[in-house]
């Protein structure tokens, strides 16, 4: 019985203090001994019981903090909500592509966060504040659904060929989803400025509609659709 329950996990390893170049390392894990049914449980089991040098980020372990985005058998996803039953008995784990590796499965997210910050991801409103809450109709609030839930895990942006090609100029799907979240917010008064800032050939228009972002988003969000909505608003603005 135990033989059927061995998972072979091959993991990308690189510690710049020890390794001249990256290598792949094999681990055999008896799933009967793993407490939990997610891929993250297997990774923690390896770290706790086989090799404490294995390095990855994790925090909430329930798919809301966005720490543990990794490339799982070629597809980006969150380890903590990837079910073991949905995986084959051989799993290859690599760091998210397109960002520099710090160590093992930990990538340097600076470029990703920079693109996020470029969208000015905060509500801007020059009007005088009411003493109570600003009113927003349920219909206007519903426009934010599918946008505000992003957890900044970077699964989408690092799966996007346009980002691979122009990581400094193309904002990437996650940042554009955030841009959309504020453009669509009826309480934000900077819609026009926000649209103008995205109108250069790269920031938004390098999106080729490949839709890798949609297929990997662990929260089921649709950045391509959000980008399309921004484009439509730009056209409306010019008309």
């Amino acid at each position: 019985m135990s033989e059927n329950n061995i998972m072979q996990v091959e993991i990308y390893r690189f510690d710049p203090e020890l390794d001249k170049k990256p290598r792949m390392q094999d681990y055999q894990v008896d799933l009967n001994k793993v407490p939990g049914k997610m891929l993250l449980d297997v990774m923690m089991y390896i770290k706790d019981h086989q090799d404490d040098t294995l390095t990855f980020r994790r925090s909430c372990r329930e798919g809301v903090c966005g720490s543990d985005g990794v490339n799982i058998n070629g597809k980006n996803g969150l380890a903590c909500i990837t079910q073991l039953v949905d995986l084959p008995k051989k799993v290859i784990l690599r760091p998210l592509p397109a960002l520099p590796v710090i160590r093992d499965l930990v990538v340097d997210m600076a470029q990703f966060y920079n693109q996020y910050e470029k969208t000015e991801p905060y509500l801007q409103n020059n009007e005088e504040l009411p003493t109570k809450e600003r009113l927003q109709s349920p219909e206007d609030r519903a426009k934010l659904d599918g946008l505000y839930e992003c957890i900044l895990c970077a699964c989408c942006t690092t799966a996007c060929p346009s980002f691979w090609w122009n990581p400094d100029k193309f904002l990437g799907p996650a940042a554009l989803l955030q841009a959309s979240r504020f453009i669509q917010d009826s309480r934000d008064t900077h819609t026009q400025e926000r649209l103008e800032k995205l109108s250069d050939p790269f920031s938004l228009f390098r999106c080729q509609g490949i839709m890798n972002c949609v297929s990997v988003c662990p929260k089921g969000l649709n950045p391509t659709k959000a980008i399309g909505a921004i484009r439509n608003m730009m056209i409306a603005l010019e008309a």
Binding site: Y122, L123, L129, T131, E133, R134, Q136, S137, D140, R141
Partner: peptide, 20 residues
């Protein structure tokens, strides 16, 4: 304190009359 959060942009769900 909650009104301030709304002013900061927190996307609260809304009632029919537009309030939090």
């Amino acid at each position: 304190a909650v009104i301030e959060l709304e002013h900061m942009g927190l996307p609260f769900s809304r009632l029919e009359d537009g309030k939090i």
